[in-house]
């Protein structure tokens, strides 16, 4: 249908623009927060409080020469950054910003997000493999093992919530929650929230789980050889992924757009920003975990807990249905 098609195109354009803006803002926030944690001002020269600094950085990245190492696979090498960035745009489509404010209302929104976020692993693998660099290769291997592992508890934690809500439609999940914090899913699913948060860090390769790009060991890991916008796209994708992960957390656990007094979209943005701030704080506070520890955390702690949580949830949901039906 052409109307549907145009709708999606417009939505994608809006999403692309907002992802770009988001990236710029996040770069500024990250550097500013890091600066203040370390008791220095952070960027403050360009524009008021350094607000224009990300623009300068972006300009610099765009202006840089695109460089490919000797012996790299040209097609895969340049495909990787694009592949890491493009799926992110799709991830924003089913996110409900407010009551009825969403790019595309989908029945299986949650599933779409989970499916497309898996593609970023492929980009990471290609980038590391194609750059003909041993650090890149090691980073890619780490990235794949990590992302595959952390996807499972993430999925299980999310499933527990959708069991409870009885829907994979994100808007429906939000509607199932109330205005006040004690009506949010985090009260009924605190464990799932914690598991989700930890696996989200692993999924987005954020410190302390930033092993694919562990700079003290692998210089820059999978994107060692990327310069200019090749690196810029990876960078942008990372921030966009962070935003998606936080937005999903808000929708599933923190009541989405619900909140007293203030309008819905504002609440949504507020909650997402708080989660993003938490992620930034974690990065600048902790050392990096080791690779075997990272996998141990996943397989020995998160996975069993997530399974137990899911089973418990399923039992209670069925039990409740049984009681109601009776």
């Amino acid at each position: 249908m052409p109307a549907e098609f145009i709708h999606i195109l417009i939505a994608l354009a809006v999403v692309a623009a907002s992802v770009g803006a988001l990236g710029l803002v996040m770069v500024w926030v990250e550097r500013k927060v890091a600066g203040h944690i370390q008791r220095r001002p952070g960027p403050f020269e360009v524009g008021p409080n350094g607000l224009l600094q990300p623009f300068c950085d972006a300009l610099k990245l765009v202006g840089k020469q695109l460089f490919m190492p000797n012996g790299a696979d040209p097609i895969l090498f340049w495909l990787a950054p694009v592949l890491s960035f493009l799926p992110v745009l799709v991830l924003f489509l089913p996110l409900p910003l407010g009551d009825g404010i969403m790019a595309q209302n989908m029945n299986l929104g949650l599933l779409l997000i989970l499916a497309f976020s898996g593609l970023s692993v492929l980009a990471l693998l290609l980038g590391g493999w194609a750059s003909n660099n041993k650090y890149g290769l090691l980073g890619a291997a780490r990235g794949v093992a990590q992302s595959v592992a952390y996807e499972i508890p993430l999925l299980l934690a999310v499933l527990a919530v959708s069991f409870q809500a009885g829907s994979l439609n994100l808007a429906e999940v939000v509607k199932g929650q109330g205005t006040w914090p004690w009506q949010w899913n985090i009260m009924t699913q605190p464990l799932a929230f914690l598991i989700y948060l930890v696996s989200a860090l692993g999924e987005t390769n954020r410190a302390p789980f930033d092993l694919p790009e562990a700079e003290s060991e692998l210089t820059a890991g999978f994107h060692t050889e990327y310069s200019g916008m090749g690196f810029g796209l990876f960078f942008l994708a990372e921030y966009a992924n962070m935003a998606v992960v936080c937005a999903v957390a808000t929708v599933l656990f923190l009541g989405g757009w619900h909140g007293p007094i203030l309008p819905g979209p504002l609440w949504f943005v507020l909650k997402v920003s708080l989660l993003l701030l938490l992620m930034v704080f974690l990065r600048w506070t902790y050392p990096r975990v080791r690779f075997d520890q990272l996998l141990n955390i996943n397989w020995k702690w998160l996975l069993p807990l997530a399974v137990a949580n899911l089973l418990l949830t399923a039992f209670f949901v069925k039990f409740a249905q049984y009681v109601v039906v009776k």
Binding site: Q38, R39, S216, R288
Partner: peptide
């Protein structure tokens, strides 16, 4: 050393 281990902030405090 903490920079080696991936923590970025301690070096700033130490330098302070």
């Amino acid at each position: 050393y903490l920079l080696d281990l991936g923590a970025f902030t301690p070096i700033m405090y130490a330098f302070d």
